[in-house]
């Protein structure tokens, strides 16, 4: 179970998250929607362990362990996965090397025997086929020269390989055309299971046509101000965020 309690976080003395609370049971998909500046991306980065934020109080627990006490890499191997809104391009680091290092770290933590190179190659090939990721893409340096859609598919590939317990998707739909969006959403849907849960951060209802959420939360000014089912997202599409921003002020 993934549970965020009374989380307060700020950057450069500006408080972004204000007593934020969220509880995600295994297998559930939660969507968080909200206007620009409501703190959605901050929430994602604080959970993953970005150092720039100051956390004054609260906890982020995954199966009882407070992730806030751990380094980013420890959070990852314990099962938290952040799909980045802007995956970083790293020239000089081969995609394969990166995937192998990431996978090895997970296997090591879980006490699993490390894959041999042929086993690893087979696994990559199998997983990348289902996401329509070409050999050529995998052979390039990490995310370098990838289109927006390719970067996001690469994020889903990593998610597929690392088999996390909780996936936070930070505006995964931004910059995607409808075909790329469908491909990414299919990848995510394939990963849905009774044990795995998702927090899907998005501006638009569109993504939720493809990844159907169990709960929709509206976030404004650093906290969740309304919770409903997928119909809440449909309503929002009609009315926009203005009501919520005004209500909040």
């Amino acid at each position: 179970m993934f549970e965020i309690k009374n989380l307060n976080a700020s950057i450069q003395d500006k408080q972004i998250l204000k007593d934020f609370n969220l509880k995600v049971n295994p297998g559930e998909v939660h969507a968080i929607m909200g206007p620009n500046g409501s703190g959605k991306s901050t929430l994602a980065h604080v959970c993953a362990g970005r150092e720039e934020y100051e956390i004054s109080s609260g906890s982020v627990r995954l199966d009882g362990v407070n992730l806030l006490d751990l380094e980013p890499e420890e959070r990852a191997v314990r099962g938290l996965f952040l799909a980045f809104q802007y995956p970083v391009e790293i020239p000089g680091v081969a995609s394969m090397t990166f995937l192998k290092s990431a996978l090895s770290a997970h296997y090591k933590f879980n006490g699993k025997k490390e894959l041999t190179i042929p086993e690893f190659m087979k696994l990559i090939k199998e997983k990348s086929n289902s996401l329509n990721i070409s050999d050529d893409m995998i052979k390039r340096p990490l995310n370098v020269g990838f289109s927006g859609g390719e970067k996001k598919r690469n994020e889903v590939l990593q998610m597929t390989l690392l088999e996390p317990k909780i996936c936070i998707l930070d505006e995964t739909d931004s910059g995607l055309d409808i075909d790329a969006l469908r491909l990414v959403a299919n990848g995510v849907n394939l990963l849905r299971s009774k044990e795995r849960s998702f927090v899907v951060i998005t501006h638009y209802q569109r993504l939720l046509d493809y990844i159907e959420p169990d709960f929709v939360h509206i976030m404004a000014d650093g906290k969740i101000i309304e919770t409903g089912d997928k119909n809440l997202a449909l309503d929002l599409e009609k009315t926009g965020y203005n009501d919520y921003i005004e209500k909040d002020i």
């Binding site: 362990g49 980013p72 980045f84 000089g92 770290a105 340096p141």
Partner: peptide
């Protein structure tokens, strides 16, 4: 951060990036 967020330890992440610099 990107590398660490995938479970790669800080030392290893730094090593990969230093190598990448001269590659």
């Amino acid at each position: 951060f990107y590398l660490r967020a995938r479970g790669i330890g800080e030392d290893e992440a730094r090593r990969l990036l230093v190598h990448a610099f001269i590659s």
